[in-house]
Write a protein that binds this DNA or RNA. Structure first.
Length: 188
DNA sequence: CTAAATACTATTG
DNA sequence: CAATAGTATTTAG
């Protein structure tokens, strides 16, 4: 499961006005949020710790639980600022198994001074790990941050075959804490 | 509107 | 190692 269809982007403002109510549910793999016309606007792995916390990004909507499963070929409607949209589009270009630093990404977007703002936008994406924000790591071999927790980020990267052995974000002696996270990532 | 907060980083002690 | 200045954007008030 990958994003096959280019996601459609929308300003938060318009999104809120167009979709005052949203529907959320879980299937075997995903916790997800959809619009009334069946577009996915939020999604995360069910196996992440407290996946339902994704709902708090949709505070301005009425949220209705619904018994449903994720469509075979979902279309995505992502609400964000133009800046966030630029960053998310760039993230979608990063192939599986490849990591780059927040600084690399900022450089790529031709805003090398805006590292910190870029990092904020990376973290603000509503469909991780589908938008592969886990592939952005710190400079100098540290793992960086992750909304769903560092263990989740580490596990995702290991699944993609990324060698993290020299990373400092995983303090020696605390390796176990990362190895110990048990969620399954599925075939995204 | 202003101020505070950031999933950052290079630099300095 | 810790502290911090620099930085752009978002969010809270």
């Amino acid at each position: 499961m990958t994003i096959q269809i280019k996601p459609q982007f929308l300003s938060k403002d318009v999104f809120c006005k167009t979709y005052p109510q949203l529907y959320y549910g879980v299937d075997d793999t995903w916790f997800f949020i959809m619009t009334g016309d069946d577009k996915v606007c939020g999604l995360t792995l069910k196996a992440f710790p407290n996946p339902a916390s994704l709902l708090r990004s949709f505070k301005n909507h009425a949220l209705i639980e619904q018994d449903m499963s994720l469509p075979q070929t979902p279309s995505y409607l992502l609400a964000g600022t133009p800046f966030q949209q630029r960053v998310w589009e760039a993230l979608l270009e990063i192939p599986r198994g490849i990591v780059m630093s927040y600084q690399d990404l900022a450089n790529h977007l031709q805003m090398p001074k805006a590292v910190r703002a870029v990092a904020n936008a990376v973290g603000a994406n509503p469909v991780s790990p589908l938008i592969p924000c886990h592939r952005i790591v710190g400079s100098r071999q540290h793992i960086g941050g992750y909304y769903w927790g560092l263990p989740a980020k580490v596990t995702l990267l290991r699944e993609e075959g990324v060698d993290l052995s020299s990373f400092k974000g995983l303090p020696m002696g605390r390796e176990k804490e990362y190895r110990g996270s048990t969620f399954k990532c599925g075939d995204y």
